[in-house]
């Protein structure tokens, strides 16, 4: 098994590396297309802004590489959003694995005046697929985000914040989570371990 973490202009990449180390898994942080293509598992993390991230991925030839991956891929946070068709953040065309749009949490829908971005621990429910094996419904995980993917046929976990949205998506070999498993305590470690077992 060789796991790679895709290196690009987004923060928080090292947190994922450290989380894997805690699980006893060595991973390589790289932007080398050859290494990414030949990895057994690819993690696509990120905290940042969608349009500048997509620009970087195109400039470094990574957008096409990611689209064509056949091994298990895990998008985290911004990584998940970039796997969708497009994002309202900077009106950005994204990678198009999941045929859906990423939207901004809107104040007009925010009747209870929740603080945006969502920051903190929230529950995931309707859990489906190998990523969530062994996890209980309504497990708490850690979120930091101001944009979200709507519920769709590909939703494998949902969370409620202002409205119900996709906390996780899956299509073929592509898995994606809006929350940060690398910062979500024991539940997050279980999800990372499950991914590496796929």
């Amino acid at each position: 098994m060789n796991t790679v973490i895709i290196k690009y202009n987004a923060g928080n990449i090292r947190s994922v590396l450290f989380a894997l180390e805690r699980l006893g898994v060595e991973a390589e942080v790289t932007d080398d297309p050859e290494k990414i293509r030949h990895a057994s598992h690819v993690i696509f993390p990120g905290v940042g802004e969608a349009s500048s991230a997509m620009r970087y991925l195109h400039e470094h030839g990574l957008a096409e590489v990611i689209r064509k991956l056949k091994q298990p891929v895990l998008g985290i946070c911004l990584g998940m959003q970039l796997l969708c068709d497009s994002s309202e953040e900077g009106e950005t065309a994204c990678l198009g694995i999941f045929p859906q749009r990423v939207l901004k949490f809107r104040n007009e829908e925010n009747k209870e005046r929740r603080k945006i971005p969502q920051m903190g621990w929230n529950t995931i429910a309707g859990l489906k697929g190998p990523l969530f094996e062994g996890l209980d419904e309504n497990e708490y995980v850690y979120f930091v985000h101001g944009y979200y993917a709507e519920l769709s046929a590909y939703t494998t976990a949902q969370t409620n914040f202002i409205l119900g949205y996709s906390a996780a998506l899956q299509k073929d070999n592509f898995y994606a989570v809006q929350f940060h498993p690398e910062k979500s305590g024991a539940a997050g470690e279980r999800i990372l371990r499950n991914f590496l077992r796929i």
């Binding site: 923060g11 090292r14 947190s15 450290f18 989380a19 180390e21 805690r22 850690y142 940060h180 690398e182 910062k183 979500s184 305590g185 024991a186 997050g188 470690e189």
Partner: peptide, 28 residues
């Protein structure tokens, strides 16, 4: 801390520049 703790953490105290912040975030 970043190697051993699996929840988010904040660091403060005397931070005054972008370089200070970059060093702390880079280290986790």
């Amino acid at each position: 801390v970043a190697h051993q703790v699996n929840i988010p953490f904040t660091v403060g105290g005397g931070i005054g520049s972008e370089e200070d912040v970059a060093a702390l975030l880079d280290n986790g």
